[in-house]
């Protein structure tokens, strides 16, 4: 049997200050296989952000094991974690987190630049990915000249630039208008059909329903892991000229 993309074994995260011990995650175990589109749901304070940080190799679990694409993510140095994030994970953030005043294409090229890929090649790929998310006509627009939905699409293009094992989206529609949210979901579903593995963290049931599988988190524990047999199909068609 092939190895899963994500494998969590009894992962806990405990924050400790002098007087208070906070358990953010308690004994979470699940696996995600290649090609799945998973939504992680939970109210605020449920620990889903902590989970996202661990899944994104931005933080390390206090106990338990986390295998990302077959690699054990544990006591690694900052630089080794940077390297893993660079190669294995495509991030899509709620606040887009693009470089300000920087052309869309440069943003998409950034992870490839850190991986020291050939510049010409990176530029070609970046163009291709931006066309894929319907921004072929906005290659050289700077971040502040784009709408929220467009910025998030640039972020998606950047997320897939390194062809990562996992696309990790944290509230990807949280900062954009609902009409544009549908576009984002439509892109996610398209990427899913193309075989990308996607984990999307959200607190909105409507958005979560676009996924194939929904994992519910509550008070730091895995509360329900359900398969969504009839995912909502995003209707938005990507238009090149918006």
């Amino acid at each position: 049997m092939k190895k899963p993309i994500i494998e969590l074994n009894n992962v806990s995260k405990v924050y400790q200050t002098d007087t208070i011990t906070t358990i953010a995650l308690e004994n979470i175990s699940f696996t995600v296989n290649k090609g799945e589109f998973v939504a992680i749901m939970g109210p605020s304070g449920s620990g889903k952000s902590t989970l996202m940080h661990i899944l994104g190799a931005l933080d390390l679990p206090s106990s338990g094991q986390y295998f990302l694409d077959g690699e054990l993510v544990e006591k690694l140095t900052d630089d080794e974690l940077s390297d893993i994030r660079n190669r294995k994970i495509g991030f899509i953030f709620q606040a887009f987190n693009l470089l300000p005043r920087t052309p869309a294409i440069k943003n998409v090229m950034l992870p490839m630049a850190y991986a020291a890929h050939d510049k010409k090649e990176s530029e070609k790929k970046a163009k291709q990915y931006l066309e894929m998310v319907g921004l072929g006509h906005r290659l050289y627009h700077t971040t502040n000249q784009l709408s929220g939905g467009q910025q998030q699409r640039v972020a998606i293009a950047r997320g897939i630039a390194m062809n990562p094992a996992l696309l990790l989206a944290d509230e990807p529609t949280g900062n954009i208008a609902s009409s544009q949210a549908d576009e984002i979901m439509s892109i996610f579903q398209k990427l899913h059909r193309e075989g990308h593995t996607i984990i999307m963290i959200t607190h909105e049931p409507d958005i979560a329903h676009h996924a194939q599988r929904i994992i519910h988190i509550k008070d730091g524990r895995l509360y329900k892991d359900e398969t969504n047999l009839k995912p909502t199909q995003a209707k938005a068609k990507l238009q090149q000229d918006i």
């Binding site: 900052d78 994030r85 991030f91 987190n97 991986a115």
Partner: peptide, 16 residues
């Protein structure tokens, strides 16, 4: 600070 965090999330090493 945010920009630096983003760069590190995308794979920037300390040296970068």
């Amino acid at each position: 600070t945010r920009e630096i965090g983003l760069r590190k999330a995308l794979g920037a090493k300390k040296k970068d």
